[in-house]
Design a protein around this nucleic acid. Structure first.
Length: 350
DNA sequence: AATTCCCGCCAAAGT
DNA sequence: ACTTTGGCGGGAATT
């Protein structure tokens, strides 16, 4: 009884439709956050994370690198990071802002001067000092770091922090972050990375995807830092009403992305292998954003504020699919409010 | 057709 | 030598 499936679509007949959404970095991050955002968590093992989250190692690197760019985690050593918490974000942002300002990162002010007449406007124009940073001490084994996701992520944040205009399109970001190299190829790659970063920050509510007033061009808006600190029971505490936006979907079905065409058409039907299908890692529980949160440390008062909503549900435990290679994930989802999972903002349409 | 962006190959760093 | 990191871009899913 009470099988109130959300049924976001009319066609439930679409049997096992590979959903790209559930595989997104955004969802992964949400899960990652819910998994480690606990006061009793300190160290994070990459293998552990990959195992519990049911994803390949590679993905964890992405998540961790981006989270590290805002101080949520910090590399501790080989195969292991340490959880810092959301409380670190404000600090990190201040630092980034200062750095950005110093480097004369962004200096836009209701500009309007593009060589391209085509473009309407509404963008901004950063300056990003071309290869600043006094030479001398450096550049040796840094060339590698210059293209790191970590750096790109920080620069992306700096753009928001240092700009007066908080609406930025990935194209612009990429352009700025490249400051040169008219090569459209590099742009492509850069934008790909930015999508990844933007998705992560979006799921953390640090930014939000919207559209530019004028053109329908999609862009990202900077959300208050305050919204991320709270982001739980106490919604907006300051001003500015914001809504939660999460692109989390619960539609987990099997199938892969229909990859590989090649030739071999292994149709192992009545296979022997006990165990249906054998896909290296699958997943998992998918719930919206993270949990209550608060400062990394002090937060021993669990059941605080009783009135209101804020109900915790730890049911739903155990994955829907028994993962053969999935260790235990028993205590991970001890909490998390269900409410989150239902907030969307799909209003803005043509 | 254009945009979004997952997947995983494979090359650099690290041990 | 092997292992850990993580650029990078093909091309499938979405819009």
């Amino acid at each position: 009884m009470s099988l109130s499936i959300v049924a976001q679509d009319v066609d439930s007949l679409a049997l096992q439709t590979y959903s790209r959404k559930e595989k997104s970095l955004g969802v992964l991050v949400s899960n990652f956050l819910s998994l480690y955002n606990r006061d009793d968590v300190d160290l994070i093992g990459l293998d552990d994370a990959a195992g519990k989250l049911g994803v390949e190692r590679r993905r964890i690197y992405d998540v961790v690198n981006i989270l590290e760019s805002v101080g949520v985690v910090a590399r501790k050593g080989k195969n292991q990071y340490s959880w810092k918490g959301f409380g670190e974000i404000p600090r990190s942002l201040d630092e980034l802002k200062e750095e950005g300002m110093r480097e004369k990162f962004g200096i836009s002010t209701t500009n309007n001067s593009d060589k391209v007449s085509n473009d309407g406007e509404g963008e901004e124009s950063f300056s990003l000092t071309p290869d600043d940073q006094e030479n001398s001490s450096s550049s040796k084994m840094d060339q590698k770091k210059e293209k790191s996701l970590w750096l790109l992520s920080q620069n992306f944040v700096k753009m928001f922090l240092c700009s007066d205009d908080d609406l930025i399109t990935l194209d612009t970001a990429a352009k700025v972050l490249l400051s040169d190299s008219p090569d459209p190829v590099h742009m492509r790659t850069k934008v790909r990375r930015l999508y990844d970063i933007a998705n992560v920050f979006s799921s953390m509510n640090i930014i939000e995807k919207t559209h530019i007033p004028e053109t329908r061009k999609p862009a990202y808006r900077w959300l208050g830092y305050k919204s991320i600190i709270e982001n739980g029971s106490t919604l907006f505490n300051s001003d500015e009403p914001k809504k939660r936006v999460f692109g989390t979907e619960i539609t987990n079905i099997r199938a892969k992305r229909n990859k590989t065409d090649s030739s071999s058409n292994r149709k192992q039907i009545g296979d022997k292998k006990h165990d249906q299908e054998s896909k290296p890692a699958a997943n998992k529980y998918v719930f919206g954003p993270f949990s209550p949160t608060g400062t990394p440390k002090n937060s021993n008062n669990n059941v605080g504020n009783g009135n209101g909503r804020l109900q915790e549900i730890e049911a739903l435990a155990s994955t829907y699919r028994p993962q053969y290679c999935n260790p235990e994930l028993t205590g991970l989802l001890g909490h998390f409010t269900e409410a989150w999972t239902r907030w969307y903002a799909e209003a803005e349409r043509k």
